[in-house]
């Protein structure tokens, strides 16, 4: 059977998904990137290989996420696309009539507006991580609540506490003040979800035409309190798809399938790449006052790719 592999390497998690010709998800893998994208991809490939039946053949590979270019070189991707397109394509596959996609990850969040299956508008959070998962993570730690229990706890709230969520630093001082004045943990947790939703809709979602069906995906979608807070604020049902945490990978796999229709032959290097010794190293080029930070990818101690230079003199590899 012919299948397609999608690899989404984000700042927090690395996700892989394998789909068949009919775009049905056959297997997926979710692991933490831990700041080492190459190792994460290799680990992911090893796990994926174990899960797949031997007769399956990978006919195409797509990469996405903030480490998409690095991953593309590593695995031999047929298509390298930004996470906006990958997430939109993934969501459209599972819910074809989708009009709005909320994606909240560890360090960034985005809103994607889809009409008739085509992305028409998008926005991403600015440099500040206030409207992302790390905001909740940080506050959960402060409250001594496990992030996994956060959502269920939020649903138990009777009167969510109002917390200023514009800025993580201020939210924290506001939250401590509310704790000191006797608000229950449940109410504070629910209040944090509402603060994040308000922040998201006012920043990332500002001026966007938010229409149902709304799909909510990314790591934060696991949090039931967030889904509830979105639904309360918008007055629409918010759908959390089955594969909410690997939607980018599913999208990348679908994009790979689209590409293969045209290119016919895959560049996939095979699952063996999980055993190859890949390394990266960087150096500061002192050729001009720009002092570019050049990154090199090495395969078995041989440089296979370089980037980061503005002038392009390092990009060309001498053979």
């Amino acid at each position: 059977m012919d299948t397609y592999l999608g690899v989404d390497v984000g700042s927090i998690s690395t996700n892989l998904a394998v789909i068949d010709e009919k775009k049905k998800v056959l297997a997926w893998e979710y692991l933490l990137t831990g700041g080492r994208p190459i190792e994460a991809v290799q680990r992911g490939l090893r796990e994926m290989e174990k899960k797949l039946a031997k007769e399956l053949k990978i006919k195409g590979v797509g990469s996405t996420g903030s480490a998409r270019h690095l991953t593309g070189i590593l695995v031999g991707a047929d298509t390298v696309k930004s996470e906006i397109i990958a997430h939109a394509v993934g969501a459209s596959q599972l819910i074809p009539e989708v009009k709005t996609v909320f994606e909240i990850g560890g360090q960034d969040s985005k809103i994607i507006i889809v009409r008739d299956g085509v992305v028409v508008d998008f926005a991403m959070n600015t440099i500040c991580a206030a409207g992302t998962g790390s905001f909740l993570d940080h506050q959960a730690q402060r409250l001594g609540v496990l992030i996994e229990e956060f959502g269920d706890l939020a649903l138990k709230a009777e009167a969510p506490t109002r917390i200023a969520g514009r800025c993580t630093v201020f939210a924290e001082s506001d939250m401590i003040h509310k704790q000191q004045t006797g608000h229950t943990t449940e109410n504070i947790v629910a209040g944090l979800c509402q603060a994040l939703v308000r922040n998201y809709l006012n920043n990332v979602g500002k001026g966007k035409e938010i229409l149902p069906p709304i799909v909510f995906q990314g790591g934060v979608a696991a949090n039931k309190g967030m889904k509830a807070a979105f639904e309360e604020e918008l007055g629409y049902e918010v759908i959390v798809p089955e594969y909410y945490h690997v939607m980018g990978a599913i999208g990348a796999a679908i994009l790979a399938q689209e590409t293969i229709v045209q290119t016919k032959k895959t560049r996939f290097k095979g699952f063996e790449v999980s055993e190859v010794d890949y390394k990266t190293r960087s150096f500061e080029c002192t050729g001009c006052p720009n002092l570019c930070e050049v990154i090199e990818v090495l395969m078995d101690r041989e440089v296979i790719s370089r980037w980061g230079d503005r002038c392009g003199k390092w990009e060309v590899l001498e053979k």
């Binding site: 903030s66 930004s82 996470e83 906006i84 992305v119 998008f122």
Partner: peptide, 16 residues
């Protein structure tokens, strides 16, 4: 990322 997504958006829209 934003530029790539922006150009992809336009091209996929043209395709559609």
């Amino acid at each position: 990322t934003r530029l790539e997504a922006f150009i992809d958006l336009i091209e996929r829209r043209k395709m559609a």
